[in-house]
Design a protein around this nucleic acid. Structure first.
Lengths: 110, 110
DNA sequence: ATAATTAGTTACGAATAGTAAGTGAATCGA
DNA sequence: TCGATTCACTTACTATTCGTAACTAATTAT
């Protein structure tokens, strides 16, 4: 069967968004600029993956990294305009989750 | 550092949405009921993964599967109300992609 | 001297994804 | 009647990604 073509921009957007942790990292940064360890403390993600994702998001222009040469070094991450523009996406996922996901989730379910 | 707790419903919604192909499958089914081979033809996904994802989405109540015992068998997939409720999420990702992803994507870029 | 903090990196096994081939029932063409 | 095709999957296997744990370097605290 012939491969229909999708809009490549939409496909790329979806691809970025459907990488694990991406959405939650952006959700966290919508609260404001945060340090590496703060993000890590807020999400159940390992340092290895957080580091990897932040690099990817920086490369895509969604996140910016600021280095403050304090001791110990302080590094802050924030959203660019492109990143902040994802807020409506996150909001819609929040709405959908609130409306359609059963509230009685137990630890060992699913 | 102590693990902050996220809203478990939001976390689950995000988790579902950020599994590869989920978004694009839902996007396809928003066009209406479709057969397995039609979805496969519309997306660059293999049969193995499409089958796996459709089962997961069915288990989550996002997709329904109808079997018509024609010859050869015809199986149609459609969105439930829960699935159709994801339309605003998809729309927002479309908007964002249109606004923020460079239009000149080449095959070998990124 | 030892431990802790920050923002990572490295190593490695486990889980997930992707590719290709196979399945079974039925239909069609040669 | 043999072989090819269709549909909706499975199975087998390899490649990529994930998750855990340990490690790094500079500095401060105990």
């Amino acid at each position: 069967m012939e491969q229909q073509t999708l809009c490549p921009r939409f496909e790329k957007g979806m691809d970025m968004f459907s990488r694990r942790w991406t959405g939650l990292i952006i959700y966290q940064l919508l609260e404001g600029t945060q340090r590496f360890c703060t993000i890590q403390g807020a999400l159940p993600i390992s340092g290895r993956l957080l580091s990897e994702r932040l690099k990817e998001l920086e490369a895509e222009g969604v996140v910016v990294r600021h280095v403050y040469p304090d001791i110990p070094v302080r590094i802050e991450y924030s959203l660019t305009d492109k990143g902040r523009a994802l807020e409506p996406v996150i909001r819609e996922i929040q709405k959908w989750s609130a409306d359609w996901i059963e509230p009685n989730l137990q630890a060992d379910q699913q």
